[in-house]
Design a protein around this nucleic acid. Structure first.
Lengths: 327, 327
DNA sequence: TTGTAGGCGTTATCAT
DNA sequence: ATGATAACGCCTACAA
């Protein structure tokens, strides 16, 4: 395995000169540059990351913490990040926290070990104060989920407005009994969507029915269970608004098993617009988050921070109601 | 940011002693050990990865190359890897090649830069000879896709047998006109599944119909297109076997638009059993690959290789036919 | 049980 | 334009 001094020796120059060639310094004569490059190719030399890292303190990689990599909500987000990061010769270290505080702290250790230049947090389970403290020492960006009134850099859609539009769509289709399959967590997005759900009903003179607001999880199973509950309520809904597309898929399957047809008997609207949404039959009406762009922006903003640039505290990206076959 | 010498100074010992404590060497007295640990906690010291890496040449991370992280086929595979890797204090560096040879070579550069201790390749687009050469210098495992008769370590299911069982199932349901929506690539898995498709028909005295074997891609759109083609054939099929679940989802949607019902009019069988398969309505019959276990095994075998252990050249994991609602 | 000191591979400063 | 050399943070002979 060739090292920089091997190259230097073979090219008859000093290691400093080889380093200059590698890092494209201008102060190298064209002839030596060419000779060095030749030797590098011949010896198949690749600079050692550890050595460079130790010297420059730059890892050229960013740590991305997601709750669970299996959740396809993150697929396109990670894609956006990957594209932007690799455009800048950055590498992604993606790790799942499984929403475990201990695990998340351990992973953040990687940052402290200087294994990454910065970190993107998706749905962190750490408390605001802990994050604020981390933010003093490291470059950190929160994506999708963040705390209200936070001073931390964050990117997301306008969850309130997005949910409100979905509800308006459902109501405009003549639905008055609308269930909301929500999630039982403390995320701001959940609170905002629930608020929008209630407010949209009220704004259209519909009395919210507590029995139609179910709090489960983001899972398929949760969608099935929630649907079975609301369809057995005293006054079952004619439309279901689900907090995620996967939950919506669960709702559709539950309705099918109840011999109810979508959208003829019960309309369904999801949230996120993951790939699966348009791949369901009939394709799912949903509120699209610009997933890829969310990832791209998060990476871009983080890289800006790392580069020492000033960045906006809050970035809100546009959502879009995708009216398809289930409403 | 505290360094090892800060800890040493504050604890009144040498850096060597601190290092021994960190690395749990036995030759440290309990009292100094305790004192050092105390100082480490107080100074919030975390060993610098770059320094250690340079010294030990161990990165404790593995490079995982997938064609495209958006493809949900990889979700559970990556999960399995992540679990096993993090159990061993290893970190995953996941990168997408987008099936681009140049990009894949660039990513492999990360290995040569000593940014990872080994690599897992999923559906590499590099030639066998190139991989064999890499295998001499680095630890490498191929997962799911590999070359026939390769000397490289690889893990997969028995694609021939898996496809054969799916076909047998379809035939046992009385289907004789069965289309196969295959993929237009050079992967061994594709060849084996096509062979199984043909052979299963022949073994049941059904004459294969060339018009029912369509080669597209693994995409949803490809499933739709292929389905439209075969359903417009002179002799349209009563069952469709798709090379992936996503293709199957496309087939189902295409059938729906043709006003054909699944499975009443046309049965559909997928391959892989990604999460979406059971989330479709009706749930998709498919051949399950043990996705999580594939990932776990690949990581395990790679770690064994890194540890210098002897490993099996070829590992075949069990598939399982999942009979659900579409057949 | 503990300390000293050299070196891992690179880059950057300071000379020349 | 190029070279010599120190330094980055850590680990590990070797010595004590």
């Amino acid at each position: 395995m060739a090292r920089i001094k091997d190259v230097a020796a073979a090219a008859g120059v000093s290691t400093a000169t080889v380093s200059r060639v590698i890092n494209k310094h201008s102060s190298v004569s064209e002839s030596t540059r060419r000779k060095v490059l030749e030797v590098i190719a011949k010896l198949n030399y690749v600079p050692n990351h550890g050595g460079r890292l130790l010297r420059t303190q730059e890892t050229k990689s960013i740590l991305v913490l997601v709750p669970d990599i299996r959740n396809s909500f993150y697929a396109n987000i990670l894609y956006g990040m990957d594209r932007l990061a690799s455009d800048h010769q950055y590498t992604l270290i993606i790790a799942s926290t499984y929403s475990d505080v201990i695990r998340e702290r351990n992973l953040i250790n990687l940052l402290q070990q200087k294994l990454a230049d910065g970190m993107i947090l998706l749905a962190s389970v750490l408390g605001e104060s802990e994050l604020v403290k981390l933010d003093q020492d490291y470059h950190l960006v929160q994506l999708c989920e963040f705390n209200q009134g936070t001073t931390l850099t964050h990117i997301s859609v306008d969850n309130y407005q997005a949910a409100y539009e979905a509800m308006t769509h459902l109501i405009s289709k003549g639905h008055e009994k609308i269930a909301f399959l929500s999630a039982n967590n403390n995320f701001l997005s959940t609170k905002l969507r629930e608020m929008a759900y209630i407010q949209a009903l009220k704004d259209h003179n519909i009395m919210p029915d507590e029995g139609l607001l179910i709090r489960g999880s983001y899972s398929f199973e949760s969608g099935r269970i929630g649907t079975n509950i609301v369809m057995n309520a005293v006054s079952p809904p004619t439309a279901i608004f689900a907090i995620s597309d996967v939950v919506a898929a669960g709702a559709i399957q539950a309705l099918y098993r109840l011999n109810l047809r979508t959208p003829a008997d019960v309309a369904v609207c999801g949230f996120d617009d993951i790939d699966m949404a348009s791949q369901l039959t009939p394709p799912l009406t949903t509120v699209a988050q610009p997933l890829e762009m969310l990832g791209t922006m998060a990476a871009k903003i983080l890289l800006d921070k790392i580069a020492g640039k000033e960045v906006k505290r809050s970035t809100v990206l546009q959502h879009q109601l995708m009216i398809r076959g289930t409403t």
